[in-house]
Computed example of a mutant assay.
Amino acid sequence: MSKGRVTREHILAQAFELASVNGLESLTIGSLAKHCGLSKSGLFAHFNSKQNLQVALLDHAHQVFALRVIEPARELSDQRIELKLKALLENWLSWNDSFQGSCMFLDAWKEMHGELGPAQQGLKKIIATWIDYLVIQIEKGQQQGEFCSQLDARQAAFELYGLYLSAHLFYSIQGKQQSDIHFWQGVERLLASWKVTG
Rank of each mutant, 00 (worst) to 15 (best):
F65L: 03
E146I: 04
C148A: 11
L58Y: 09
L169S: 13
R154H: 08
R5K: 12
L160Q: 08
V6R: 13
W109H: 10
Q143T: 10
K124A: 13
I136K: 11
F47E: 03
A33V: 12
E146L: 06
D97L: 06
Q137M: 12
A87I: 01
L83G: 08
I127C: 00
G4D: 10
L134Y: 09
K34M: 06
A15W: 00
K110H: 13
G4H: 05
P118C: 02
M104I: 12
L169V: 15
A153N: 11
L32M: 06
V135D: 09
I136D: 13
K3F: 05
S172R: 14
Y171D: 03
N91T: 13
L165T: 07
C103W: 08
S166R: 09
Q79H: 14
L163D: 08
L165Y: 04
H10R: 09
L32W: 00
L18H: 04
I29H: 03
A19G: 00
K50S: 05
M112K: 11
I29V: 15
L160K: 08
F147K: 06
V21F: 09
L58V: 02
A13T: 10
Q79Y: 13
A56E: 14
L163N: 14
A15N: 05
Q121N: 11
R154C: 04
G23Y: 08
P118W: 01
V21D: 14
N48T: 11
A108C: 07
N48Y: 09
I11W: 04
Y171V: 04
V187C: 10
S94M: 08
E139S: 10
K3S: 04
E90L: 07
V187L: 11
L32E: 02
Y133N: 03
L53H: 00
K140F: 07
H182V: 07
L27P: 01
Q143E: 14
W92Y: 15
C103D: 15
L85P: 01
S31L: 09
L57H: 12
V187T: 08
A192M: 09
I131Y: 05
R80S: 15
H168Y: 15
D107R: 13
F99A: 11
L58R: 05
A13E: 13
L93E: 00
K86R: 14
E115Q: 10
L57C: 03
